[in-house]
Amino acid sequence: MMDSPLSTHLAFTLGPVPISTTVLTTWGIMAALAAAAWAVTRRLTMRPGTAQACLELVVETIQGQIHDTMHTASTLFLPLIGTLFLFILAANWSSMVPGIEPPTAKIETDAALALIVFLSVVGFGIQARGLGGYLRSFAYPNLFLVPMNLLEQFTRTFALVVRLFGNVMSGVFIIAILLSLVGLLVPVPLMALELLTGAVQAYIFAVLAMVFISGAIEEKPSDAAQQQEDTAS
């Protein structure tokens, strides 16, 4: 019987705090990302080299996606969305390194990411519309849907968690099973598929985060109609 994909493995204990392998891997990914970013952005020039051009392309693409999806030119969401995308991508692709289990294959990491998205949705919503306005948005289109809207907030966050977790974990799981059965060359197509799935899941996670946030900050149609009536009268 193989290990449960739901359980974590203890790496070592730091005082009273048990440090799991997942956290350890996450630290490694964080260090790698930050170091790479620092190494490239340490000397930025007006005439970019290859590394700087690639980095600028990545940042510009993320900003472009934010602009397309959220219809805002604001760079306020760039750090959150960009980090989510880059971290999930790096975490998903870290399964290619032998002996590394991607942090996103553990439900704790996905839950942490989803929690941050959830809190961001609430935070940006309150920031954009005020506390009253944000709470009133739950009563759209009418008061009877307040429980449904509240429930939707949690279910969609839960779906975010389970989607990412299920995809990455199943991929890792299947590759592990195949490795235990055949071992050589056969898992390669599935690993390639895992690369694609990892990229797509990172993208989808970021897009859904954008959609949730923009849904929280943007005017509901009733508000827009109300405003139009006000301006008309």
């Binding site: 389970v162 989607r163 977790f165 995809n167 199943s170 797509v200 899941q201 989808i204």
Partner: peptide
Amino acid sequence: AMIETTAIYCLV
């Protein structure tokens, strides 16, 4: 991804 979520639910 949304559609796949239902399959993932079953998997979970």
